[in-house]
Simulated scan of single mutants.
Amino acid sequence: MRRQTHDINALREALDKANAQVAALEVSRLTGPRIEFLKAVEELLKQNVNDSEKKFLRFMVTSWGGFLVAASVLVYALKK
């Protein structure tokens, strides 16, 4: 009886290990295409962030330029 209990426990442990290996293989099989997809999404996000930063920089330069022109006109008008 003890030997059978020991054998059953050993079989359960072996089954658990086999199930874990199958699950790991399944995860690795599924994540391959997903990793490529996530890399593509990450690249698009980086590109969008760079474009947004460039647009923001252009906006800041343009707004400061407009402010300087308006301030110059105001100072010129007040001097007269």
Rank of each mutant, 00 (worst) to 15 (best):
E43F: 05
E13V: 04
V49C: 08
G65W: 03
F56N: 02
S28L: 10
L25Q: 15
K80A: 11
K54L: 10
A20C: 09
F56R: 08
R3A: 05
R3K: 11
T62W: 04
L15I: 10
A77Y: 08
V75E: 08
L57V: 04
N19P: 03
N48P: 00
G65K: 02
V73S: 02
K80M: 14
R34I: 14
N50P: 01
T62V: 12
I8H: 06
T31M: 12
L78M: 14
A18L: 07
V75I: 13
K54S: 10
D51F: 05
R29K: 15
I8D: 10
R29Y: 12
K17G: 05
H6D: 11
V41F: 13
F67Q: 15
E42I: 09
S52T: 10
T62K: 07
A40I: 11
A71I: 07
A18D: 05
E43H: 01
R29N: 15
R29E: 14
R58C: 04
A70P: 00
S63L: 06
V69Y: 01
D16R: 02
L44C: 08
F56K: 07
A18M: 01
L57N: 09
F56P: 01
N9L: 05
R29V: 12
F67D: 15
K55Y: 05
F59G: 00
E53P: 04
L15V: 03
V22A: 01
G65Q: 03
A20I: 03
L30Q: 11
K46Q: 14
A10H: 04
V75G: 04
R34S: 14
D51S: 09
L78R: 11
R2G: 09
A40N: 15
D51T: 12
K80S: 13
L74W: 11
M60N: 09
A18K: 05
L30D: 07
I35K: 10
V27I: 07
L30T: 03
E13F: 03
M60F: 06
K39V: 14
K79Q: 11
K54V: 14
D7F: 00
Q21K: 10
S52G: 08
K80L: 11
D16N: 02
E53F: 01
L44T: 03
V22K: 04
K79C: 08
G32C: 04
L30H: 07
D7P: 02
A18T: 07
Q21G: 05
R29M: 13
K39F: 09
F37W: 12
K79G: 03
A24L: 07
N19C: 06
R3C: 05
I35N: 12
V22D: 04
W64F: 14
G32S: 12
A14I: 06
S28P: 02
V27K: 09
V73Y: 00
K79H: 10
V41H: 13
L30R: 08
F59Y: 12
V41G: 09
L68N: 09
Y76F: 14
I35E: 14
T62Y: 06
R34W: 12
Q4L: 10
L38F: 14
F37T: 11
